[in-house]
Amino acid sequence: MLQLRDLPTQEVLQRFAQRYPAADVTAIASFLMLLRVATDLSVALDACLSKHDLLQGRWWVLILLMREADLTSTPSVLAEKLGVTRATMTGLLDGLEQGGLVKRVLVPEDRRSVKICLTEAGQAKLDAVMPDYYTRLRLCMQGLSAPQRNDLQVILGVIDHGMSAWDFNQ
């Protein structure tokens, strides 16, 4: 993953705007800062999870299973919720199963179907990771008051709504 460490100055952005009239300097600066912070957060999350011998994709699968009342789901539902292909999900599940963190269980009504279950070892892994994760998350966000955090969620929701601008199928 590329990381833009050197954000452009206002002067540089103004030069770009002179050359490209569609350029909105404040939108560019905000976008680049958001992109950089998102990348930094992802890298920090990777570092935190690696201390617990996990990768983000596998961790998210464990989280998704833990969210279920019966701690089970299907590979296709997990893939959809995680936004990955079924092939990618198969690879994630293979690694988790090899580590004993999940198990595949055949569905008696349809022997072609499989459910994925969070194992006790998988729950224990989450129990080891989550306090560290939540502590780091709290420290990361401590500079924002509760109302500012709510405002941030609203702002990010507005940005998310504008993501259709990046849909090249329209």
Rank of each mutant, 00 (worst) to 15 (best):
T74Q: 13
Q123W: 03
N150L: 12
G57Y: 03
V114E: 04
E11F: 08
Q14S: 05
L139C: 07
L144I: 01
L2M: 07
L45R: 08
T135K: 15
L144H: 07
R138K: 13
L71I: 03
A128Q: 10
S164H: 14
L4G: 00
F31K: 13
V105D: 04
T90W: 03
V77F: 03
D70C: 06
G157T: 12
D167R: 14
P147I: 03
E11A: 15
D151K: 07
L156F: 10
W59V: 00
F31R: 14
L7H: 09
V105S: 04
R86W: 06
S73C: 05
R104W: 10
S164T: 11
L101G: 09
L118R: 02
D167E: 13
D110E: 06
A47R: 14
E11Q: 14
R104M: 14
G57L: 07
Y20G: 00
C48K: 10
A22K: 12
P75W: 00
N169Q: 15
K81G: 07
P75I: 01
V37N: 12
T119C: 04
D53Q: 14
G100W: 09
Y20P: 00
L55P: 01
I155F: 12
L64N: 06
A165T: 10
Y134R: 12
D6T: 11
R111E: 15
A29D: 15
D132T: 14
L78R: 01
V84K: 00
D160N: 15
I63W: 04
L32E: 14
S42H: 09
D127S: 12
D53I: 01
E80C: 03
L118S: 02
P131W: 00
L2F: 08
A17W: 05
V158E: 01
I155Y: 13
S50N: 12
R104G: 13
S145E: 15
L34K: 15
L49Q: 02
A38D: 14
G95Q: 07
I63L: 05
V105R: 07
D160I: 09
P8A: 09
A128R: 04
R15C: 00
T119H: 04
A22W: 12
T39G: 08
D167I: 06
D132L: 03
V154N: 02
G83N: 04
T135F: 11
P8Y: 07
L13V: 12
V12F: 08
K125E: 05
A38M: 09
L35Y: 09
R67T: 11
A29T: 06
A165G: 06
I155M: 11
Q142L: 08
V158N: 00
Q123M: 08
